[in-house]
Simulated scan of single mutants.
Amino acid sequence: MPPLVPPFTLDTAIAKVRVAEDGWNSRDPHRVSLVYTEDSRWRNRAEFPTGRPEIVEFLTRKWAKEKEYRLIKELWAFEGNRIAVRFAYEWHDAGGSWYRSYGNENWEFDTAGLMQRRFASINDLAIEAGERKFHWTLGRRPDDHPGLSDLGL
């Protein structure tokens, strides 16, 4: 596989999305922060973290709240140094209530392939435990687990 740097091709954009999904499914804020530039700017719901330390703090809080987090990302579009994805993730809160969160992200990368901007729009849907669709051991989604389109999401 060629380096995952812009300008992206279909193959490198798909690979970049999967690498991002794998990182987020690790739920390791420090590991995840390393794929962003030192001064990366985000919009995530109503929060606007800037730079790796704020990203780490944000993700630490996120994953303390969102228990058993499992995420699937899917390429939506790409051009040059930008990629758009859609995603869904399932999680439960401290009280055991389950949610599926849906969203879209727009990403912009520097020439080294680090993400310098991430803009996310997300909606949460309360679900029953029996409605869950993401069933794998915590961590990386297995290659044979269906993606969003395959699951009808």
Rank of each mutant, 00 (worst) to 15 (best):
R27V: 11
R45S: 12
A20S: 04
T12C: 13
L10N: 02
F48N: 12
P53Y: 01
Y99R: 14
A88G: 14
A94H: 13
P29Q: 01
G51A: 03
R86Y: 07
H92F: 14
R132M: 10
V56T: 03
L10R: 04
A88H: 10
A77C: 02
K133F: 05
R86T: 04
G96K: 09
P29K: 08
R100F: 07
K65P: 00
F109C: 03
G139I: 13
D93I: 00
I127Y: 01
F48H: 14
R43Y: 05
R45N: 10
A84D: 05
A15C: 02
P3V: 03
D28T: 05
R118W: 11
R118E: 11
V85N: 07
G103A: 00
K73Y: 12
I83E: 08
R82L: 09
T111S: 15
R61Q: 15
D22T: 05
G51N: 03
K67A: 01
R100C: 14
T137I: 11
V85H: 06
S149L: 06
R118T: 08
N44E: 06
T60D: 07
G152W: 07
R41F: 03
T9M: 11
T50Y: 09
W24G: 01
E38N: 07
T9A: 08
E128Y: 02
D110E: 07
A13T: 11
K62I: 00
R117T: 15
L75F: 14
L75T: 13
D93E: 07
P6D: 11
S26D: 01
H92Q: 15
R43Q: 10
G139H: 12
G96M: 10
V19C: 00
E108D: 10
G147A: 03
R100W: 02
W63F: 15
E57T: 14
G147V: 00
V5L: 08
A129E: 12
P7C: 08
L148A: 12
V17C: 04
P6I: 09
E79C: 14
G139M: 12
F134M: 15
V85G: 00
T12P: 09
Y99T: 15
S40E: 06
A77K: 07
A15K: 04
G139K: 14
F134Q: 13
R132V: 08
S101L: 05
R100V: 13
D144M: 03
Y36V: 02
K16E: 04
N44P: 00
H30C: 02
F48W: 11
